[in-house]
Design a protein around this nucleic acid. Structure first.
Lengths: 296, 296
DNA sequence: AAAATGTTCTTTATTAGTAAAGAACCGAAT
DNA sequence: ATTCGGTTCTTTACTAATAAAGAACATTTT
């Protein structure tokens, strides 16, 4: 056997979502146009069209591609089947590590992990290699992978590194004359106010906004090494949020308010205040991260 | 087929080097002791002993392992065969990239690279994945690896990041009360003086000493993220040294003298001077790196 | 002539199978 | 009794084979 057609299935689902915006009798664009839309090759587009014709959604004769009926929920492939294996592996791996609360020192076997996560072995391998620099796992030459555990020490070192790098990035942001940054800040203010206004449990959108806010800061450094570290932080912090739900609402709202303080100080150009609000925020973030570990 | 016995061959070579220190008629230690010495499993040790007996170097009967004759140069396996594939792959890959002077945008194909470097495909794969965060290569989903090239921009970003992190590490070193650090510094002074005294072309030892010196500094931060970045720097700088040989002697001696200044300021406890000498050194390092690119 | 389609050729990702290296167990010798 | 050696069992790493996905070329239609 070979690979599992994830690209094809993802293509079908994207195509179905597009077809839902049309009316029966409408014509689809050219294969090349669809390839652009589905972000894939024409080869895959043709496979998708053939599939759509087979299930009777469209009539396909040469360059005529006519929509017969609107897509039905059952036409879609289930989400996991239509996710790229790399993304799937990462999601499931992190969730597994967090949920099963494995003890530090646990040995991870590629084949075993692959079976547990239901993803191909090479993907697990790639994932583990990519993850090693994060410091959560380690490999002994010619031996196996071991879990290092999310210790207080780890959290402290991460927070230290973050303070150093994000602090520098923020300093550059303040020094920058780029109007684009102010525009992004204004947009951030809007989004923060909007999220704070919603009293409900819509805090599920918080991690994404939090990551976006910090990405704006890191981006100001215009340095690929900064950006890379930002990604790591957001990954670890994101899964930390997912894991530690206690006081979530209170904690997230506090963070949003701290963000707003920083944003507003930037917008009015009060650099001293901005700097101070930023340091405060990083301190809060550090405390939250460290606290979440000791309460495990 | 399967794997290429690198561990075994490396074991044989290490064992031969050990035997060269003995006299014919001497007895070898137990299998467990040899396993400790060769840094490998007893299974491999027994394979090595069998090999040594086969080529008539030792007589092996149960627990009696008697040296028959001293090892000959021809008994050793050639170095590349006896190197762990991961190290071999890394060495050859970097050398290949630097030497063949590939244009940015060049497509790297795993199988092709594996053939060129004469290393197994999985090793190339692992190497490329590990290398991606260094920013020299990139992967497009479902497509191939492309070389980003060692640009001036890259060098600048690397130097910026280095100044930030190593600067912080050095500040912690100065603040530290740890006597171990002073001891390491004294040892560094000795090694630097020794290398500077040798007028000859023994500068081949410079990269190792340079890396060791900076490792002492990064280690003072006691932060795994600092250490990891230090590794990257040393890797890139090392290969930059190897590639750019012009003015090598002059450049290396200058660097050694700058190191000495820093070391001595630390030893006498003059923090202001140490700090200043360190900043100067980082500036020199940056200039050297950037210059080496523009002269390609 | 231009654009879209049909066809063919590469390249990549995955699985299965096999040999090397590691680990554990048990019996023998000091 | 304890250390050492023989044996067996696991686990890992590599090769090879195969199907999916991408890319290029040729052909057809407007």
């Amino acid at each position: 056997m070979s690979r599992g057609q994830q690209t094809f299935k993802l293509g079908v689902n994207t195509a179905l979502a597009h077809l839902a915006t049309l009316q029966p009798g409408d014509r689809l664009g050219s294969e090349a146009a669809l390839a652009e839309l589905l972000q894939t090759s024409r080869t895959t587009v043709r496979a998708v069209l053939k599939h759509l014709a087979d299930i009777g959604l469209i009539e396909w004769l040469g360059r005529d591609k006519i929509l017969r009926r609107l897509p039905d929920p059952v036409d879609f492939f289930p989400k996991p089947e239509a996710t790229l294996p790399a993304d799937l592996a990462e999601e499931r791996f992190l969730e597994w590590v967090m949920r099963s609360d494995l003890a530090p020192g646990t040995v991870l076997r590629e084949v075993e992990v692959a079976r547990i996560l239901s993803v191909p072995v090479p993907q697990v391998r790639e994932l583990l290699i990519r993850f090693e620099p994060n410091g959560l796992i380690e490999k002994n030459t010619h031996k196996n992978w071991v879990l290092n555990g999310f210790t207080a020490q780890f959290a402290t070192e991460l927070a230290d590194m973050r303070a150093l790098i994000e602090g520098e990035a923020f300093a550059r942001l303040l020094a920058s004359q780029d109007a684009g940054i102010l525009r992004q800040m204004a947009e951030m203010e809007r989004l923060h106010i909007a999220l704070l206004a919603r009293e409900d449990a819509a805090m599920s959108e918080f991690p994404a906004l939090d990551a976006a806010f910090h990405r704006v800061i890191f981006a100001a450094a215009q340095n690929r090494f900064f950006d890379e570290f930002a990604q790591r932080i957001s990954l670890i912090v994101h899964y930390h949020y997912q894991w530690n739900k206690c006081d979530e609402q209170v904690r997230n709202r506090a963070a949003l308010r701290e963000h707003l303080q920083i944003i507003r100080a930037c917008l009015v150009g009060d650099k001293a205040l901005a700097r101070q609000a930023f340091v405060t925020h990083l301190e809060t973030a550090r405390r939250t991260l460290v606290a979440s570990i000791s309460t495990r």
